[in-house]
Computed example of a mutant assay.
Amino acid sequence: MNNAVTANAKVMIIYGTRPEAIKLAPVIKAFEQDPTLTPIVVVTAQHREMLDQVNGVFEVIPDVDLNLMAHGQTLNDIAGTVISQIDEILDMYRPAAAVVQGDTTTVMAAAIASFNREIPVVHLEAGLRSGNIQSPFPEEANRKIVSQIASIHLAPTEVSRTNLLTDGVPDDRIHVIGNTVIDALNWAVSRPPRDGHPLSNRLETDTRRVLLVTTHRRENLGAHMVSIGRAMRQLALKFPDLLIVWPAHKNPEVRASITPQIEDVGNIISTEPLEYGEFSRLLARSDIVLTDSGGIQEEAPSLGKPVLVLRENTERPEAVAAGGVKLIGTNTNRIVDEVSTLLDDDEAYSSMANAMNPYGDGRSAERCLTIIKKFLNI
């Protein structure tokens, strides 16, 4: 591949889900402010409504919206459609490079389509590994596939860099830049809140401690999700002075497992998914976070919030090693015990809340821009 290009090079940024939109928004903004690059923003809309919310918050207007979301689509449906439609867009714009972030099916398929067109792939948040191809599924496989074909690997931490080296990625293609989620979070928390959101209004005057719960992982659907719902109920009854906030994921299986167990409990608030700015302020207001999300494992420690992860493994071990994040699985009794310890033991809480944040300083997008420009000889 010949990566020597002239100024005003087109760089295509491809994403489809809410987490990708959050982590790519600072990169898009950095590109927009640089006169030597032209960002071409392409969304697949693997997540439609939640994706649009994030784009609205960051004032990102896609150049191409493929609108691929369809009810009941399988992973193979998504992959096949993304590859074929992204291929047409790549042929139309002929970018000098394509940027993808993370490990979704959109990321894997867009990377393959770009590689087959001999367009260099830039992989943001490269090198995450759980060590188990089935967990998380299909993300662990997706990120390993992208690592085989990317030209630039933008790793968030030294641990991720080591993972890539172990996989045989050449050292000169790996750059440790931190995580752009911190750039996005700092921006969102610093902005004034919108007037009138009922949850914000309630939390302004409610002095109770807040437990924020988010859960959506495919591998937690079914019995694991039911177990999480039971734990939420038991915690609410055990600590009547605790306010539990659950932004309910759109997946109907998640709601069917959890809602019946909590709907009659007064100190549990169930809300629709929050737009990113509102969720960031909720995260900042919370005292403890209970989650199976990957991104929140990165965001919450930067705000000094202890994170209990509803999984048996994680591709983000840095915060676990630092002490701000703890893997606890989905057993009801274990969840109740771990949350109870943080609520009852000031020393245990302080130890997690004051752990070092390993995910960067909020300048990752700047580093991303510099590295891509150097790669393109701009």
Rank of each mutant, 00 (worst) to 15 (best):
E88Q: 14
D87M: 08
G266C: 05
T44C: 11
Q261D: 15
G362H: 04
R285N: 10
S135E: 15
K29C: 04
P252W: 12
T207M: 01
Q134P: 09
V57W: 08
G324K: 03
K374H: 06
Y93A: 07
Y93F: 15
S190Y: 06
L376T: 08
R129M: 02
V41G: 00
P26K: 04
N3E: 03
H175Y: 15
W246T: 13
A321K: 13
T205L: 11
R233W: 01
N2V: 00
R18C: 06
P39I: 12
M352I: 12
I335S: 11
N333P: 06
V107A: 12
R367L: 15
R363Q: 13
D337F: 00
N116R: 14
V60W: 09
R129I: 01
T205W: 01
D183M: 13
G360M: 07
N201K: 13
N357E: 09
A79M: 04
P317W: 02
T106R: 11
E275H: 11
N201V: 14
K250R: 14
G222T: 14
A111H: 02
Q85S: 05
T207C: 08
N2L: 14
A231M: 05
E347A: 09
M352W: 00
P156Q: 05
T6S: 04
I182V: 06
P247I: 06
A126F: 01
I149N: 06
